[in-house]
Amino acid sequence: MRDMLLVVDVQPSFTPPDWLVTGIRALAKRMPSVATVERHDESCTPFARQLGWHPAPDDESLVAADRVFIKYGYLPPREMIDYLIAQQPARVLVCGMQTETCVLGAGFMLFDAGLSPTLVTDLTVGSSLDRSGELGATLWRHHFRQLTAVAQLDSQS
Score class of each variant (00 low, 15 high):
M1N: 00
R2S: 00
M4A: 04
L5V: 03
L5R: 00
V7Y: 08
V7E: 07
V7L: 03
D9G: 10
V10M: 02
P12G: 04
S13V: 01
F14M: 11
F14L: 13
F14T: 05
P16L: 05
P17M: 04
P17T: 05
D18Q: 03
W19L: 03
L20V: 06
L20Y: 10
I24M: 10
R25F: 00
A26H: 11
A26V: 08
L27R: 10
A28G: 08
K29N: 07
R30T: 11
M31D: 01
P32G: 07
P32R: 06
V34K: 07
V34R: 08
A35G: 14
T36C: 06
T36H: 12
V37L: 12
E38K: 12
E38D: 09
R39V: 12
R39D: 06
H40I: 10
D41I: 05
S43V: 02
C44K: 14
T45L: 01
P46V: 07
F47D: 02
A48I: 09
L51D: 00
G52I: 08
G52E: 01
H54T: 10
P55L: 05
P57S: 15
P57L: 03
D58F: 13
D59V: 11
D59W: 07
D59K: 11
E60K: 15
E60G: 08
L62P: 05
V63D: 05
V63I: 15
V63M: 13
V63G: 10
V63F: 12
D66K: 00
R67E: 14
R67Q: 15
R67S: 12
V68L: 13
G73L: 14
L75I: 11
P76G: 13
P76I: 14
P76K: 11
P77T: 15
P77V: 14
R78D: 15
R78M: 13
D82R: 07
A86T: 05
A86P: 01
A86E: 10
A90K: 02
A90M: 06
R91Q: 15
L93D: 01
C95I: 13
G96I: 12
Q98F: 12
Q98Y: 13
E100K: 06
T101M: 13
C102D: 15
V103N: 10
G105H: 14
F108N: 08
M109R: 14
M109F: 06
L110W: 03
F111C: 05
D112T: 05
D112Q: 12
A113V: 04
A113M: 09
A113T: 09
S116T: 00
S116P: 04
P117D: 07
L119D: 04
T121D: 09
T121Q: 12
D122R: 02
D122S: 01
T124A: 14
T124E: 03
V125W: 05
S127H: 03
S127P: 07
S127F: 00
R131D: 04
G133F: 01
G133M: 03
G136W: 11
G136K: 00
T138D: 02
T138Q: 08
R141M: 05
H142M: 07
H142P: 03
H143A: 00
F144M: 00
T148C: 09
V150H: 02
D154A: 04
D154Y: 02
D154N: 09
